[in-house]
Design a protein around this nucleic acid. Structure first.
Length: 284
DNA sequence: CATTTGCTTTCCCACGCATA
DNA sequence: TATGCGTGGGAAAGCAAATG
């Protein structure tokens, strides 16, 4: 099932690759389009969609040196939350490289590593409110980009190795054909790119068939028979989010970690104040 | 001046046609 | 004939132009 483009597409991809290599930062598909337009590889406006499909194909099939993270996606953030340090040594190493944000690793007392994903960016504030701050989350923004899916697979693989925990992806989105399709296509790629030893399961926590009656959700007037996540009242949304998350996470353990983190940081600060070396001690 | 509408970007899938 | 290619349709979001 190896991707073998025909001559013309292969040449186009090679030309695109040269442009990718020509700069020392990650470029977007759009940028590539204009470069190739300039070169005369493309002309019509409809060529844009053609190029996008081709670039998707190349990145997802690992054609030559193309990889899912070859092109940039600056609009979606994928990063771990709740990460900390195993011990003072590891922490001091991070201090040295200027990446410290906390000390105690929130995941050390959990039974699962959980990532929450949701369909629309418009939902972000609500999830920020109902999820513990130490939980990683990704707003898909419709169909999620290839680089974002790649980062998610990397994050889950990394977490699985570091914590030795089974990983779970909990998804929330609209109850309509597209809302069902978005996470399924994302899940397929993420599962494909996950190392085989990673214990991974996906759960769609809402909106699911039947929720519209269970929670008395108003129909989307623009498309009968479909239901928007935003139509949920705040209380119900909060219960759905918290309920799904609490079936995997020990929230109190997470809170204990947060408290412990604060305690250790305070203790360290006190110690540091007392033992702080002078600039002369450090030979500065 | 605020809201609505339209356009653009990026992704996916389905389908029919072309080709090595 | 299996695989590659191109098109059309659809969703979310951000921005700009049009509208009330």
């Amino acid at each position: 099932m190896e991707y073998r483009p025909r001559l013309e597409q292969a040449q186009l991809l090679d030309a695109a690759w040269d442009h990718v290599q020509s700069v020392s930062y990650q470029v977007s598909a759009r940028w590539l389009f204009y470069r190739l337009l300039q070169d005369g590889w493309l002309s019509a406006k409809s060529d844009y969609k053609r190029l996008i499909s081709l670039l998707s194909k190349a990145r997802k099939s690992f054609y030559k040196a193309w990889r899912p993270d070859t092109l940039a996606d600056d609009t979606r953030a994928v990063d771990g939350a709740g990460q900390g340090y195993r011990d003072l040594d590891e922490w001091l190493e991070a201090v040295a490289s200027g990446q410290v944000f906390s000390y105690v690793d929130r995941w050390q007392e959990q039974n699962y590593y959980v990532l929450v994903c949701f369909e629309a960016k418009a939902m972000a504030a609500q999830f920020d409110f109902y999820l513990p701050s130490w939980m990683p989350r990704v707003a898909f923004g419709g169909d999620v980009s290839i680089p974002a899916k790649w980062k998610i697979a990397k994050l889950l693989g990394w977490a699985s190795d570091r914590y030795g925990l089974p990983t779970r992806l909990i998804y929330f989105g609209d109850l309509d054909p597209k809302g069902l399709l978005i996470p399924e296509s994302a899940r397929t790629d993420i599962e494909t790119w996950l190392p085989s030893h990673v214990d991974f399961e996906y759960e769609r926590a809402g909106l699911n068939e039947g929720d519209q009656d269970a929670y008395d959700i108003a129909e989307n007037p623009e498309r009968p028979g479909t239901y928007q996540w935003e139509a949920l009242d705040d209380d119900t949304a909060g219960r759905l989010i918290s309920g799904a998350v609490e079936s995997y996470l020990d929230i109190e353990a997470g809170e204990r970690c947060e408290a412990e983190d604060a305690r250790r940081m305070t203790a360290f600060r006190e110690w540091w104040t007392e033992h702080k070396p002078s600039a002369a001690d450090l030979g500065l």
